[in-house]
Design a protein around this nucleic acid. Structure first.
Lengths: 106, 106
DNA sequence: ATTTTATATTGAAAAATTTCAATATTTAAA
DNA sequence: TTTAAATATTGAAATTTTTCAATATAAAAT
């Protein structure tokens, strides 16, 4: 059970999902592992730009890379996604009755 | 059941989680609805900056605002969080046997 | 050995985001 | 009806992110 969730770490994880091209990339990975050249074929970005996005996705822990000879194979990390889901689930607010709610320092 | 998930929409939702101050804000909201002045007391940002972050959080659908006289009360939207969780759950890749996996356009 | 292929890195420009001071707006208090 | 309090908006600076051309690296093919 993760106890100390730090803001920096969470923000790095979720950077995976806040760019449209990265969402497109993740969409492609839903059907399974893909190598960079295949991902690139289905996007309108340059090869260095793809490389940059894959780095952000890997840094977030949402994607993992498997290097095989010349090729970089990318896939979705179930552990990474599970961690992100776990954080979102922690956002379920503890129900506080509306009467108890304190207001504005007073 | 959401069918057409568009990349722009998803990226706007997850922008909520990719800034450290916004994570701090969400952390405060876990214990229930808070008004802007209380949130501000616990952050090291100016009032206009908080206002800016609250707009991003509301635009994402993760936070909802309730205006009561002078005060803006913010809380976590369970529907918003549920939608985000639902997207993350859709990232579970369909298992494809490693033998079947096609590689690099060839 | 040289060339080709797949990917990464560097450096710089463009675009987007974050931030705050100043100011506006709206409501409550005096 | 002035004044104060809570929040929003505007405009500009600082920072970060996105992007691509050029180049580097590393492995495969010739």
């Amino acid at each position: 059970m993760e106890k100390l969730i730090d803001e920096r770490k969470i923000s790095i994880i979720f950077k995976a999902f806040c760019d449209e091209n990265r969402i497109q990339i993740l969409k492609q990975l839903i059907t399974g592992e893909k190598c960079a050249c295949v991902l690139l074929d289905n996007l309108h970005i340059s090869q260095p730009t793809l490389s940059h996005h894959m780095k952000i996705l890997c840094d977030s822990g949402i994607v993992i890379m498997r290097k095989e000879q010349k090729w970089a194979h990318y896939s979705i990390s179930q552990e990474g996604v599970a961690y992100a889901i776990n954080y979102l689930q922690s956002l379920t607010p503890i129900n506080i009755s509306k009467e108890d709610k304190p207001c504005c320092n007073k």
